[in-house]
Each structure stands twice: as structure tokens, then as C-alpha cells.
Amino acid sequence: MKALISIDYTNDFVATEGALTTGSAGQAIEQAVVEVTKIFTKNNDFVVYAIDRHEQQDQYHPENTLFPPHNIAGTTGRKLYGELADFYEKTCEQPNVYWIDKRHYSAFSGTDLDIRLRERNITEVHLIGVCTDICVLHTAVDAYNLGYKIVIQKHAVASFDPVGHEWALNHFQQTLGAEIIE
């Protein structure tokens, strides 16, 4: 059994005016993100939207010293970007679609993702979204440590750092044994 984990494809990470945007790199993968999500949803695979959520008043979060405020609860910056937002609205009530608010880079950290995957006998996770070298990477490392087979949909991941993006793709394959789908 397999699952799709769609990571942080929100306005703040993708839109031109986003608070921590991947810009054109993130925008260039929009069709791939939507198409992969449609395929997994149509096949009735488990589709997880793992979305960063920060609180405006959270002065203790370690990202506050690393990045500008982003994906703040209740803002348009935290909403899914472009066509993915429309597709999610049409499918969010389906039993195979699940939304996770995450506070850390990894979709596994502090969430019930591992439990949700195991109760469905899922052994393989496909990762898409942004940023390749931050949240996608940390999710992949945790998936590896938990024993999941990892598949990276290369055409559906992006970063604001081209060097970090390429390094992460190599790391997925060479260090985590991930399959990279072009």
C-alpha cells in the first residue's frame, strides 16, 4: 500500500508575494503537484496534506530566528496554492484525504502521521511539495527511520535554493535509498 504526502504547497511558499516563497521554481511544479495528487486521489490511495502551521504570537518557535513569519494560522499565506486549493476543496471530504497541521519541518514530527499510515498498512510514501531541502528532506529522513519505502516525485518538488534542491535529491537516493521518479 502506498500514500502521497503533499508538503507545504501553500501561498507563502509558492506565490510570488509569499512570505518564504520558492517563487518560479515552486510555481513551475504546480501542474505536476496537481496531476500527481489527482492520480493518487482517483486511485483511492491515502493522500495527506502536511501543511506548516505557525501562530503569530509563538515567540518560542525555533524557526522565528531562521525565517520570516510564514504560514500563520488564519492567513491567506497558509492556504493551498493555485489549482491544488481548488482540487482540495472538491475532495477534502473523501475518506482517503487527510489534512495534517505540522509545526516542524517533518510531517511526522509531533503529528499522528505514522499511526495513520500504519493503520492503513501503508509501506511506501511518495513525497511532493516544497521545500525539497527542508520539509521534504526532513519528512523523508523520518520516513526512512520509520522503515517506509520512499519515492520522490522529482517533477513535483522544488526549493528556493537550487544547490540545496540538487543536494537533497542526491541525498534521498544515495543516503536514504529513495526511488526518484522523473
Rank of each mutant, 00 (worst) to 15 (best):
Y105H: 11
V136K: 03
F87E: 02
N121Y: 10
I122S: 12
P69N: 04
K90E: 15
S106E: 06
S109K: 05
N44A: 11
Y49F: 15
G26R: 02
G129D: 09
E55N: 08
S106L: 02
V125A: 04
H61D: 11
L127G: 11
Q27P: 08
T132M: 05
K102D: 00
V33R: 01
E30P: 02
E93I: 00
C131G: 08
H104P: 05
C135L: 06
V125M: 05
V130S: 07
G110F: 00
V97L: 04
I51Q: 15
E35R: 10
E119W: 14
L137D: 05
E119P: 12
V48G: 06
T76G: 14
T139V: 09
D86C: 10
L84E: 13
H54P: 12
I100E: 00
W99I: 00
A107T: 07
E63Q: 01
Q31R: 11
A32K: 08
K79A: 06
E35P: 08
I29W: 12
T111I: 09
G77L: 01
Q56R: 09
L84N: 09
Y60N: 15
T132L: 04
T123W: 13
K90T: 05
N96S: 01
H104K: 14
R103T: 13
V47M: 13
E35N: 15
T139N: 07
R116W: 15
W99G: 02
T132K: 13
G110W: 00
I122C: 07
Q94S: 07
F67R: 10
G110D: 00
F46K: 03
G77Y: 01
